[in-house]
Simulated assay, not measured.
Amino acid sequence: MTCEHCGRATGDPRSASNVEREIVLRIPERHFWLMRKTFHEMELKLGMHGLGELANTLKPYGKNFDQEFDVFRYFDDGAMAMASIGVTWGYRGVVLIGTMDARGRCPVHIDFTGEPGSRPRRMRMSDCATPEAADRFKAWFEDLQDRLAPPSGEAVGPDA
């Protein structure tokens, strides 16, 4: 038989003070980039404040957010978070890949459309993506819109 509050087997000789619980987070895809930014910045901040042991404790959790690091390392996590959330609020965007510079890098922006007839709002995603990363980002963003955008005409934004 188990305790209805903590799930510990009744009659367990261990006291509640020395039984550690585990927290499991389920993070929706639209918040992936926000969590990635949070973990990586906290790891950096703790290290800068001389709390290396705490920073190292965060590393395994932050590693879970390093999917396709070779592509997305060129893109700003904050902009990625805003773009992902914007898509779920019903904003549509078009990825614009700029011209390549002398280093072989190119800027990447998204033009988001709002109300019909309004001017698109441009969001800078990267200043220095490789052409391959820019192309893969474009494919990722188009797929994200196809999967996460609400049905057209449905208001789901922050003011809905």
Results as ranks from 00 to 15, higher is better:
residue 2 T to C: 00
residue 3 C to V: 05
residue 6 C to W: 12
residue 6 C to R: 03
residue 7 G to F: 12
residue 9 A to R: 14
residue 11 G to R: 02
residue 13 P to K: 09
residue 18 N to S: 09
residue 18 N to E: 15
residue 19 V to Y: 03
residue 19 V to P: 12
residue 19 V to R: 04
residue 24 V to T: 10
residue 24 V to C: 09
residue 29 E to Q: 13
residue 31 H to K: 05
residue 34 L to P: 00
residue 36 R to Q: 12
residue 36 R to S: 02
residue 37 K to T: 05
residue 39 F to V: 02
residue 41 E to L: 04
residue 41 E to I: 07
residue 44 L to A: 11
residue 47 G to P: 03
residue 48 M to F: 13
residue 50 G to M: 02
residue 50 G to F: 07
residue 52 G to C: 05
residue 56 N to T: 04
residue 56 N to G: 14
residue 58 L to N: 01
residue 59 K to L: 15
residue 60 P to Y: 10
residue 62 G to S: 09
residue 63 K to F: 07
residue 63 K to Q: 07
residue 65 F to Y: 11
residue 65 F to S: 03
residue 65 F to T: 10
residue 66 D to N: 07
residue 66 D to W: 06
residue 68 E to W: 05
residue 71 V to Y: 00
residue 72 F to D: 03
residue 76 D to M: 04
residue 77 D to L: 11
residue 78 G to L: 14
residue 84 S to C: 15
residue 84 S to R: 01
residue 85 I to L: 10
residue 85 I to Y: 06
residue 89 W to H: 15
residue 90 G to D: 13
residue 92 R to E: 11
residue 99 T to W: 03
residue 101 D to P: 03
residue 103 R to W: 09
residue 104 G to T: 01
residue 105 R to E: 08
residue 105 R to Y: 11
residue 109 H to F: 13
residue 110 I to E: 03
residue 114 G to M: 06
residue 117 G to K: 06
residue 119 R to Q: 06
residue 119 R to C: 09
residue 119 R to K: 08
residue 121 R to L: 10
residue 122 R to E: 15
residue 122 R to T: 15
residue 124 R to G: 08
residue 124 R to H: 02
residue 127 D to M: 13
residue 129 A to N: 05
residue 129 A to I: 00
residue 132 E to R: 00
residue 133 A to R: 01
residue 135 D to P: 10
residue 136 R to H: 10
residue 138 K to D: 12
residue 138 K to E: 14
residue 140 W to C: 00
residue 140 W to G: 01
residue 141 F to D: 06
residue 142 E to S: 09
residue 143 D to C: 07
residue 144 L to A: 02
residue 145 Q to N: 06
residue 147 R to N: 01
residue 147 R to C: 08
residue 148 L to P: 02
residue 149 A to G: 09
residue 149 A to V: 01
residue 150 P to E: 04
residue 151 P to G: 03
residue 156 V to W: 03
residue 157 G to Q: 04
residue 157 G to W: 05
residue 158 P to N: 05
